[in-house]
Amino acid sequence: MKNATDMSQRHDSGFTVEVGAQSGQKLSACYQCGNCTAGCPASFVYDRQVNQIMRGVQLGMKDEVLDSRAIWLCLSCSTCSLRCPNNIDVAAVMETLRHMARKENRVAVGNVEKFWFSFLNTVRAFGRSWEIGTMALYMMRSLRLFTDLDLAPEALKKQKLGFKPHVVAQGGASSVTRIFKRYKERAEREGVRP
């Protein structure tokens, strides 16, 4: 049986301050009306609802918040921010939490990050995203080899997907590659996960 949460032990006020500073949001303004949860299109796949994430941040419950699946499944549609009666950009808070979790290598929903990397790898290589390349990389990374296989016949028939990547001309592709290279090097220098 779970013991009652010891509030005095829970409160990591440094975490609360950090989230507030990085997101630029006044977290104490949240009065828990639940509007963010009510409007969130992804709430049905969340382990913790948005208002609970906000509560967790207010209480400094770092582990519970950064290890939640919800911050990875947030669609960044910003419905929550639009309708928050206290002008909190809740989507910015969610994105901040995602960044913080990533940097500490806490990735509760690995496939989401794998998809992002698959996408970004094609951009790094060619300067532009390449859908088939993204899919192939994702299938390898996630070991979900049958992802969207049901769509393949139709997509191919309609020639929705290009078999060849679009490479940015005039050295553009390598310029983009350099952006990624510098980004990675800097992250390593700063001791965070790129």
Partner: peptide, 8 residues
């Protein structure tokens, strides 16, 4: 939302 239930 029902915040007591913790659900939309």
């Amino acid at each position: 939302a029902d915040t007591l239930l913790g659900e939309p």
